[in-house]
């Protein structure tokens, strides 16, 4: 079976249609089913690509919110949530992270590296697991940095993985690309994630099932009605099936 790989959280927007086509051709060539472009809120060019869209390729529009002030975060999220396919919040300090995991409509929590009074701890991990918020595992730092900075990134990712496993938090594996040359294929991302101890199964799950689940609830497809309501397909017992025939 061909996996439907997604790389959400690409922080790069091609400037024009030509760059966009090149970006899409590289992503398809690498074997992605879809990519998510996470932009800062209120940018004008949110859905401006006018070129041909492939029906087999899924271009996902997301938003990444950088907000230092926890009290302003909620209004920003509710402002953006209806317009995009997923909402990502960049955390930081403990207060900000707490406020992010408590907010409605947040899908992904992205945490920067090397913040002293912040990062992923057991409190955040537990509430993220309860609310179904995924934690972003950005291997872009392993690609871009060398030496000490990369070393710290690896150990921090290890720590996050331990917590995510313990509390059963959803994980999203992304390349966090900032330019067209930062994109990596799914197999490369799996290999990079193995550097900090993620297994192949976890990595595949973090690129296929979890992004698909995020998009399913946001896009309200596949029998989604509203939060907490589930469509159970009625199964006709075998003996009654014959009567219908």
């Amino acid at each position: 079976m061909v996996e439907r790989y997604y790389d959400l959280c690409i922080r790069y927007l091609p400037e024009d249609d030509q760059a966009m086509e090149r970006f899409l051709s590289i992503a398809t060539h690498f074997g992605f089913k879809g990519v998510g472009i996470a932009q800062v809120p209120n940018s004008k060019s949110l859905i401006s690509y006018t070129g041909p869209r492939n029906s087999f390729f899924d271009l996902v529009h997301g938003v990444e919110i950088h907000e230092e002030n926890p009290s302003k975060l909620h209004s920003q999220i509710s402002h953006c949530a209806k317009k995009v396919d997923f909402v990502m919040v960049e955390g930081g300090t403990d207060k900000l992270n707490r406020s992010a995991v408590e907010a409605a409509n947040v899908n992904i929590l992205s945490l920067p590296f090397g913040i002293k009074d912040g990062g992923l701890d057991h409190v955040i991990a537990r509430s993220a697991a309860d609310r179904g918020i995924a934690i972003e595992f950005d291997v872009g730092s392993l690609i871009r940095y060398r030496g000490g900075k990369r070393l710290h990134a690896v150990s921090e990712l290890e720590q996050r993985l331990m917590l995510a496993r313990k509390f059963d938090v959803h994980m999203v594996l992304t390349s966090g690309a900032r330019s067209i040359y930062d994109i990596r294929g799914p197999r490369e991302l799996i290999a990079l994630s193995s550097l900090f101890g993620m297994t192949k199964e976890e990595a595949i799950n973090a690129m296929t099932a979890i992004p698909a689940a995020i998009l399913r609830t946001k896009r309200k497809t596949h029998g989604f009605i509203m939060d907490g309501v589930e469509l159970i397909e009625e199964q006709v017992p075998p003996e009654r099936q014959e009567e219908f025939c």
Binding site: I26, H29, F30, L142, I143, R144, S179, Y181, D182, I183, R184, G185, E188, L189, A191, L192, S194, L195
Partner: peptide, 17 residues
């Protein structure tokens, strides 16, 4: 994994796939 960490070749941005 090591090949994926290559970002530039000969001074220009590159991807090794």
């Amino acid at each position: 994994a090591a090949l994926a960490t290559i970002t530039t070749i000969g001074g220009q941005r590159a991807i090794v796939h």
